[in-house]
Nucleic acid binder design. Structure first.
Lengths: 313, 313
DNA sequence: CAATCGACGCAGCAATCGACGCAACTCGTA
DNA sequence: TACGAGTTGCGTCGATTGCTGCGTCGATTG
């Protein structure tokens, strides 16, 4: 670990920019060594270098330098997006007359039972309570996803239970929407949520929307079955900073949609390919593929306010 | 501190309108940056932005843009614009690539405008307000249906606007669900609502559900794309007094589904074939075909009343 | 003496400007 | 019922603005 100070030339060489540019960045955006006496040589600490790295990466992505600088300036402990995440051990559990929910807990089992009963009131109450108590992420990963997966499995196996699946989806959708509405986000919507073309499953996207609302981030949600042209037009019109495209199955995961997004007139800062449909090796460069809801949320949060933090509204 | 100077593009993105429209608003209504040198770039201060926000909200409520601009122009205290604002006082309306709502009223027009802007917040607020004020039936017939029909027409004609249609549907769905939840029905659910097989439009059914909830009648809602076997099974399991099957297009209106219902072990008292998909001459005997939402509601209410009479305790 | 500093200027490029026009909707009128 | 007048949002075009990266110059630092 070199905690010695780097000279301007060294930093410039490392970043791949001219020395003059470093000076410009300093006096235009205040993005320089934390301690610097005017007239003396600049000494960049590792922390300063990290800030400049952010600046360089953002500008390389196409962000306006002024924006990137504002963003890099206030990031002392910036990038730790990918953290250690405990992975639930896949364990076979339970059979029986109801829906297999794995070891998702008694609440999930109760929810599954209510679903089998087509008891929409109980379903709605259970989900709403979980949302209020544990938050969107935990409810999604620990309750909704297991139960829905269980119904799906059963549905594939027995070619029945479709009405149960639809009822669950509807109730979950309602509960998520209610949760999102309970915490109305403020500020401009810089994040666009959309399903892939032909994709009709929008529930995970609604969960993400609710999670965003929970975090106080406003967004635009287009919903299911959004054709490429419509998506591109929406991007062109609203110019979001980030776009999340959900694909549930491989059939709906056409990488061309993402390429079209990147080629749009107002290229979004970040394009997220979410859902199990996407294949990592076929994604165009510059597209990020979050592993789960939590990661998608943290990525979206990272881009949140790249433009301004005005105190209006 | 004039630190917050938004560019035209930033403001346009924030409001959801085109940059050109901002310029138009400036030169037509004098609604622009307080200090602007002709030829130079426009710099919107927070005060200017607030004025535009008012403009946006008013137009979303259905106010004529010209009038909205007059309102917004004199809103902020202090610096006032002395722009070329000599407009005629005529209260004409209409214009732009909006959605034809005919003579459905200003609220519908405002809703259509908000939809074009993909402004889900405004859409949701408008619908929720209408639901609370006028009730479900009036909101459906006087607001939602005209706007949705307008979008549909336009969508067929121009092969675009799909994202607007989806957003409207989603917001309407949310609002209807919220309204239904606000008045939780009591008692056992004796009415089953379901889409026909392969039918994916469930919004009218959700409107009926909300209307039922408003009337204090409890129901079970299965949702979209319910296969015949699933529907029959649900009927067998829950034994409803009435079943409403919605079909939006002729392709999904297979009379066999209704026959299967009538042949079910626990034959429902009343089977309603709702939606424009059904053809009166092909319906099996004993199936009623309501003309609109109000009729469907009154039929459902009649069933409830007859039940109360027969099973009175 | 090499590297850097602050100041100044310049060329490329994206965003924006003003002007014009188009398409589409409403409404009054024939 | 059809049609023209009035409105309105927005696309397009050529010119301009303003931001950005960086080279240059004389003075200073290490």
């Amino acid at each position: 670990m070199a905690d010695e100070a780097l000279s301007a030339g060294a930093v410039a060489r490392r970043l791949g920019v001219a020395v003059t540019t470093l000076r410009t960045w300093h006096q235009r955006y205040g993005l320089g060594p934390s301690e610097h006496v005017p007239g003396h040589h600049r000494r960049y600490t590792p922390a300063d270098l990290a800030r400049l790295e952010i600046m360089r990466r953002l500008t390389a992505e196409g962000v306006t330098p002024a924006e990137a600088a504002r963003w890099a300036g206030q990031a002392p402990a910036g990038v730790d997006v990918a953290g250690p995440r405990a992975r639930p051990v896949t364990a076979r559990d339970g059979g029986g007359p109801t829906i297999p929910v794995g070891r998702a807990g008694p609440v999930a089992r109760g929810l599954a039972r209510a679903a089998m009963r087509l008891d929409s009131v109980a379903i709605g109450e259970t989900i709403a309570h979980a949302l209020a108590t544990d938050g969107v992420i935990a409810t999604w990963d620990g309750l909704l996803r297991p139960v829905l997966a269980g119904i799906g499995e059963r549905h594939v196996a027995t070619a029945g239970l479709i009405e149960v699946e639809h009822l669950m989806s509807r109730c979950a959708s309602e509960a998520l929407a209610a949760a999102a509405r309970a915490r109305p986000p403020t500020g401009p919507a810089r994040i666009l949520l959309s399903c892939a073309d032909e994709e009709q499953h929008s529930l995970p996207l609604e969960a993400l929307a609710a999670a965003l609302a929970e975090a106080g981030v406003s967004y635009r949600m287009l919903g299911a079955r959004v054709p490429v042209t419509a998506l591109v037009e929406a991007v062109t019109r609203t110019g979001p900073a980030a776009v999340v495209v959900w694909s549930h199955t491989r059939a709906t995961a056409d990488p061309g949609q993402l390429s079209a997004l990147l080629a749009a007139p107002r290229r979004p800062l970040l394009v997220l390919a979410a859902g199990p449909g996407w294949r990592a090796d076929t994604l165009p460069a510059g597209v990020v593929r979050p592993a789960d809801l939590a990661e998608a949320l943290s990525l979206a949060l990272a881009v949140r306010d790249s433009l301004e933090q005005s105190t209006t509204d």
